[in-house]
């Protein structure tokens, strides 16, 4: 039966993409919404198995491509240890690139669990960071990493001799969002760094943190890390908030 009154949840849905106010039958969720969830799950499963295509990044400057020891997506999912170490040709390539250093900052566009996230957001974010940081930050060429886990950045940064590495990595796809990007920032990267030695900015996508906000937070953290000489749990994010742009609250 269709209710004659307007959906009372309509005004609340502008604040969140969470599945609030779902129609109910007895204790259960209505069938249409159950099928909607199944459709979203099927799309997310597809995103997990997609590969990163550098041609779709629209690169403006030359980049260096590297690969982890995981040879395909299926092995990547099951063997995180392979995803944290570089294959031999990549090591050679990075050692060669190190000769052009030293670098203060290396940005890595890494597929992680969503190549879609990187294809859509890594390059605009890289441009924003370039514009925001001053000349005291010498930046390496962009690194593109395939079948990469967060800790692959440690080996990349160490081989490049970079003072700081920032992994721009695709998050595990969710049902509402399959292209969410995270930034993991590690000072003095080297193999064996712990997760508590990193700072993270997550949920960068069209309905989450904007490119501008993510860039603002990252630059604040980079300056704070440079003063402190480290990243990790001892570096607390106390950056001032940017104004949320009005269009961010609208849901298409």
């Amino acid at each position: 039966m269709t209710s004659p009154v307007q959906d009372p949840w309509g005004s609340l849905r502008q604040y969140t993409r969470a599945r609030i106010g779902l129609p109910r039958t007895g204790d259960s969720i209505a069938g249409s919404e159950v099928r909607a969830l199944q459709a979203a799950h099927a799309s997310a499963r597809r995103a997990v198995h997609a590969s990163l295509d550098p041609a779709r990044l629209n690169l403006e400057c030359p980049a260096i491509e590297v690969r982890s020891q995981a040879t395909d997506r299926s092995e990547f999912v099951r063997r995180p240890d392979f995803g944290r170490r570089l294959d031999t040709p990549s090591i050679t390539r990075l050692k060669h690139a190190a000769q052009d250093g030293p670098w203060d900052l290396a940005l890595v566009a890494a597929d992680g669990l969503s190549a879609f996230a990187v294809e859509r957001q890594a390059i605009p974010l890289q441009s924003a960071i370039h514009t925001a940081l001053d000349q005291t930050w010498r930046m390496s060429p962009l690194i593109i990493a395939h079948n990469a886990r967060v800790a692959l950045g440690d080996e990349i940064g160490e081989l490049l001799g970079a003072t700081c590495v920032v992994m721009m990595i695709g998050e595990r796809p969710g049902l509402s969002v399959s292209d969410s990007l995270s930034l993991y920032m590690t000072w003095n990267p080297k193999v064996g760094r712990q997760d508590s030695e990193r700072n993270c900015i997550s949920n960068i996508h069209a309905h989450g943190l904007s490119i501008g906000e993510a860039c603002h937070k990252l630059c604040w953290l980079l300056d704070a890390a440079r003063r402190l000489g480290r990243t990790g749990v001892s570096l607390k994010d106390e950056s001032t908030d940017m104004k949320i742009l009005p269009q961010q609250k609208s849901i298409p």
Partner: peptide
């Protein structure tokens, strides 16, 4: 439990509030 079983921040599926009702019944 999370709305509709879909956590829009952590990007994973948990139970829904409705699932809790089902278990109670």
């Amino acid at each position: 439990a999370v709305p509709g079983g879909d956590d829009v921040m952590l990007s994973y599926q948990s139970l829904s509030y409705h699932d809790i009702l089902t278990l109670r019944s």
